[in-house]
């Protein structure tokens, strides 16, 4: 297991290095970054001054080395707009996005896995129809549209939830989510729920017919234990990888959902940064999103090893 984790760790570091490279050259690909940063009618002298201020007049290799030494310690330079370190801005917004993503993931798991299990255990029945419908709806309805409908219906119409913004309550110094997270989280979890329903159903349908399930039946094990101990345990293996990938996607921040609900998270920050051509911030967010995905993939691989003994010992 240690060797397995170590090899995954080294792979992750290499990926991050690649990401840094891409993030750096992303800016150079725009041609002359300075022309994007100054206003259209700036004089050549002004452009030259900004160029020197930002250090774009230095040789490429020097710029790259500078960028890399900064990036390694989390320094992506100052946000042009906010006049603050880009990383600091991200870390400020992080709790809101983590809260939204976690609640959305929990919702998706609580709805998706039991529904997929019910559907897969009696194919063709009522639950299966519901399950397939949920999978289809979850994956096809655009979440920004659903978000607007939810606001119109539950916030404006029924007044159950605030229409926008994030509210927290503080218990013993810990910020806890309030009902303000429910609508954005539900809109955000929709796609993940659809995926979980479909994959759980498919996994159960497949595993139900495995020889070892028949062996379990031949021992006289009851249906409930067959599902919890034998089928679900094995179905968990493919589900872990989906949950990992989906959580990474949720954590990178959703531009649509955070914008619609004015949720003060990373997605919102990114939308703003792109609008302002705030390059340092965009670079920092891009790197941060990759970092999140890489870390989650690493955790997924480790969880995978824990769930499947064939991987754990198979090195």
């Amino acid at each position: 297991m240690q060797r397995y984790i170590l090899s995954r760790l080294i792979q992750s570091l290499l990926i991050l290095l690649g990401v840094l490279l891409i993030v750096f050259f992303m800016l150079q690909l725009t041609g002359d970054p300075v022309s994007l940063m100054v206003s259209r009618n700036a004089s050549p002298e002004q452009v030259q001054r900004v160029r020197e201020e930002m250090g774009f007049n230095r040789p490429m290799m020097v710029q790259f080395a500078d960028f890399m030494t900064g990036a390694v310690v989390g320094d992506f330079g100052m946000s042009l707009r906010h006049r603050q370190p880009a990383m600091k801005l991200i870390l400020e917004r992080l709790p809101a996005t983590v809260e939204l993503a976690t609640v959305a993931l929990l919702m998706a798991m609580v709805i998706g896995i039991p529904l997929g299990l019910l559907g897969g255990s009696n194919p063709g029945g009522f639950w299966d129809t519901l399950c397939r419908l949920a999978g289809l709806i979850g994956q096809t309805i655009p979440n920004f549209w659903l978000a607007l409908i939810l606001i119109v219906f539950f916030s404006v119409g029924l007044g159950w939830f605030p229409t926008f913004g994030r509210e927290t309550c503080t218990v013993f110094g810990i910020h806890l989510p309030t009902r303000s997270v429910i609508l954005p989280a539900f809109a955000l979890c929709l796609f993940t729920t659809g995926q979980l329903v479909r994959f759980t159903r498919a996994a159960v349908l497949e595993i139900k017919n495995e020889d070892y399930v028949r062996t379990a039946y031949s021992k006289g094990i009851g249906d409930r234990q067959i599902y919890t101990r034998h089928i679900l345990r094995n179905a968990a293996i493919p589900l872990i990888s989906i949950i990992g990938v989906q959580f990474g996607y949720l954590l990178s921040g959703s531009i649509y959902i955070e914008t619609i609900f004015s949720w003060p998270g990373i997605g919102n920050l990114l939308a703003e940064a792109i609008g302002n051509r705030d390059f340092a911030l965009v670079q920092a967010i891009a790197f941060f999103a990759s970092l999140t995905v890489v870390i989650l993939n690493l955790l997924t691989d480790i969880a995978y090893g824990l769930a499947d003994p064939r991987i754990r010992y198979g090195d």
């Binding site: 070892y212 094995n234 499947d308």
Partner: peptide, 12 residues
């Protein structure tokens, strides 16, 4: 059962 590899639960 005949093929004990597939007839035994791999994760138990």
């Amino acid at each position: 059962f005949q093929d004990a590899l597939s007839a035994l639960n791999p994760v138990m």
